[in-house]
Amino acid sequence: MAIKDYIRERFFPHMWCAGCGHGIVLNGLLRAIEQIGISKNDIVMVSGIGCSSRISGYVDFHTLHTLHGRALAFATGVKMSRPELKLIVPMGDGDALAIGGNHFIHAARRNIDMTAIVMNNRIYGMTGGQYSPLSGYGTSATTAPYSNIDHTFDVVNLSVAAGASFVARTTAYHVMQMISVLKQAILHKGFSVVEILTQCPTYFGRKNKLGGAVEMMEYFKNNTTSVGSKAKQENPELIERGVFVRKEIPEYCSEYEKIIQRATIG
């Protein structure tokens, strides 16, 4: 099956800007799904609001385009009521971790079986380049004209602390790794988080004088390293990529099945 069989071709070319990393995430996600070979009827994609969330319109799955930050809450209802479905929840960084931060940590804590993809471009793109919780101290944004004084979350550490049972990070440059970790995340039984650093040349790149899409991807190439690598020891500034956590712990829907068994015995 070619990846074109997984998209709604009539909506292409898509609405993302030239060079937007979100398109690369869509590309990699489709290949991961193609390689796993899941039936389109078995996948529910739930997204929130923002540039990232438009991904759900382009894929030929059951697609639920919800409210800003609430994708995981909607997904929880879908998953609990039909546990056999595969839930994939792509979100932007503001979507997942500002307005949706509470839902994010609680979905992770429950270890409900779904894959959260944080498409982290460090900016609110749809509204025109305001700083997000992932922009970082010292960055520039349309709402941080004097420089941003907000510190960031570390998405990986946050996810681990919240209890996610699979946590990975990759970038829009590292497409082979992206496909690989997405496959692992989707196949993992439990709450999986994949943070993908993606470039927003239109706003984050321009506001912070980082060049275009190519230069921003060069940055991902040159400033990241495999998790636990020697390079990280030598240069602590490098951002680690790879799978950080993978553990088998009781999954929420499976546990609820046990509740049903307990309740129906008496």
Binding site: H14, W16, G23, I24, N27, A172
Partner: peptide, 21 residues
């Protein structure tokens, strides 16, 4: 093909085996 944000490139190889990533 994999890095194209627009899903605009396909590399067709022969013999036309299923693409092996």
């Amino acid at each position: 093909e994999l890095r194209c944000p627009d899903l605009a490139i396909e590399v067709i190889t022969e013999p036309s085996e299923v693409s092996e990533s």
